[in-house]
Nucleic acid binder design. Structure first.
Lengths: 186, 186
DNA sequence: GTCTATATAGTGATAGAC
DNA sequence: GTCTATCACTATATAGAC
C-alpha cells in the first residue's frame, strides 16, 4: 500500500514545500493535490480548510523552538545559560531552516491568523530569557541583536567561502560576544 | 476639484496602506478602488496591472536607500564613513518604516517579481560598504549584524519606556560598536 | 479514504461609452 | 479621467457516489 495513515503527513510535507517556495496565497489546493497525485477533495478529508494546513505546519515546525523556550525558563538566568541558549538556538535553526524560510515567506498571512501573535510571543520570550529587565537601553538592544545576529549572520555569510560549521561557529561567537557585553553593562 | 493629477499618487498611498496591512495577495483591486471611492477600471487607467502598482511603490519607497548606497560608494572606506553610513541608515529608516513593514509583509510576492533581487542587492551593497572583504568570518558577521541590529533593536525596544530619540541613539550606539569591533579585527 | 461533479464567489483584466 | 458591463479564469469548499 502506498499510503497508510501517512497521507496527512504527506500533505503537510508537500504544503510546506510549496508554501515556502511560492507563498501560502499563491499556492492552491489544486497544486498540492496534483503534486501528491490525489484530488483536492482528498485534502478536505484530512484538513477542514486550507488554513488548517497552515496551522498544523506552523505548530509542528515551531515545536522545537517552544521546547527551547521552555528549557530556558527552567534554567537559572546566568550568563552561562544565556550563552548556551544562543548555542542551542543556533543549532535549532539548522534543522528549522524550513520554518524560517516558510515564516518569512508567509508573514502577511500568518499575521491575521493569530499565528502572528504566537510567533512574536515566541521571539519575545526568547529575548526575555536573554535580557536583564533593569539593563540600559543599549544592553536591551545588545540582547535582541545577539538573537537576530544569528539570522543576519547566516544570511550574510551565505555566499562566503567556508564550511557550514565554520560559519555557524563565527555567528555564534559574535552572538555570544554581544550577550557578554550586555552582561557587563548590567 | 477633488482630484487633479494626484490620483496616481493617491492610488499608491492607499495601496501601500493596504499592502502593508494585509499583504499584496490578499488586497484586491476592488478594495483599493473602494477606499479611494473610484472604480476598479479607474485604477487601470493609471497602472497597467496590479503588479505595476507594487513596482511603483517599491521604487519610490526604495529611492532614499538607493541614494544612501550611492552616497556611500563615493566616500572613502574609512571607519568614520562606516559609522556615518549607519547613522544615515538609521535616520532613513525612520522615514522608510512603511517600506520595511511593506517589504516584510510581501516577501513571498516580491521574490518572484525580480524585486527580490533588487532588494537583496541593495542590502548586500550596504553590507559591502561596511565590510572589509579580507576580514575574518567573525568580522563579516559583525558588519552584517551592525546593519541588521538597527532593525532588530527598533523592534525589540518597541514596547520599552523611552523616547524615540533615546531608542534611536541606543540602537545606533550598538551598531557602531559592532563596526568598530570589526574594524579592529581587520 | 478517495473519487466526480458542482456550487459559489471573487479575482484581475478589457472594451467601449461618456 | 472615470464610468458600466462583462470576460475568462481560478479559487475554496461541499455533496454524495464508490
Amino acid at each position: 500500500m502506498a499510503s497508510r495513515g501517512d497521507t496527512r503527513q504527506r500533505i503537510q510535507d508537500v504544503a510546506l514545500e510549496l508554501f515556502a517556495e511560492k507563498g501560502y496565497e499563491k499556492t492552491s489546493l489544486r497544486e498540492i493535490a496534483e503534486r501528491l497525485d490525489v484530488t483536492k477533495a482528498a485534502l478536505y478529508y484530512h484538513f477542514k480548510t486550507k488554513e488548517d494546513i497552515l496551522m498544523a505546519l506552523f505548530q509542528s515546525l515551531g515545536a522545537p523552538l517552544d521546547e527551547l523556550v521552555e528549557w530556558g525558563k527552567r534554567q537559572p538566568r546566568t550568563l552561562e545559560m544565556k550563552k548556551e541558549l544562543l548555542a542551542r538556538y543556533s543549532q535549532a535553526l539548522q534543522g528549522a531552516a524550513a520554518l524560517f524560510r516558510f515564516m518569512q515567506e508567509n508573514q502577511a498571512t500568518i499575521k491575521d491568523l493569530s499565528l502572528g501573535e504566537t510567533f512574536k510571543n515566541r521571539m519575545f520570550a526568547m529575548v526575555d530569557l536573554l535580557r536583564d529587565e533593569d539593563g540600559s537601553l543599549e544592553d536591551q538592544v545588545r540582547c535582541a541583536t545577539a538573537l537576530f545576529s544569528i539570522h543576519a549572520g547566516l544570511f550574510a555569510l551565505k555566499d562566503m567561502d567556508a564550511t557550514p560549521e565554520e560559519k555557524q561557529k563565527a555567528v555564534l561567537t559574535v552572538a555570544q560576544e554581544l550577550i557578554v557585553a550586555a552582561h557587563h553593562g548590567a
